[in-house]
Amino acid sequence: MKIVSFALNGKKVSCEVQDRELLLHALRERFSIKSVKEGCGIGECGTCTVLIDNEPHYSCLTLASKVDGHDVKTVEYLGDAGLLHPLQKAFIEAGAVQCGYCTPGMLLSAYSLLMKNENPSDSEIREAISGNLCRCTGYIQIVEAIRDAAGLCKCKP
């Protein structure tokens, strides 16, 4: 077992994890963050995406011990019902959500993009979400949403 301390959605947290424990399972089980999903477990679907130091990573292939001293963000960081992030609003408005299973990961990849690039082109957007599969939407409305949000938000770390 190991103690890991990290920033989770802006708050300092600390917990004991097994050496072999994956960040995905630590978040789901120890922190009850169920928005992080396990669609495949081998880095091939993107539903487990989290931001580590503001860059998207697959939490299914990240040992929990690796985030010690780092910053971890999940979709909960973006906003809540009273105060949606412009990206979340844009996802709703554009119809970018169907079954919703890919949505948290998709939002995080988008958020990371907008942090680095306030005015991305469509091909930059497509590339930024190319590590997140969506079986429902065909991505078009997701790209639209990210484009719409780009003008509206400053995604500061």
Binding site: G43, E55, P56, H57, S109, E127, G131, N132
Partner: peptide, 9 residues
């Protein structure tokens, strides 16, 4: 290589 996430890892 892979995807943005894989390239970060």
């Amino acid at each position: 290589i892979g995807s943005p996430q894989i390239r970060n890892m």
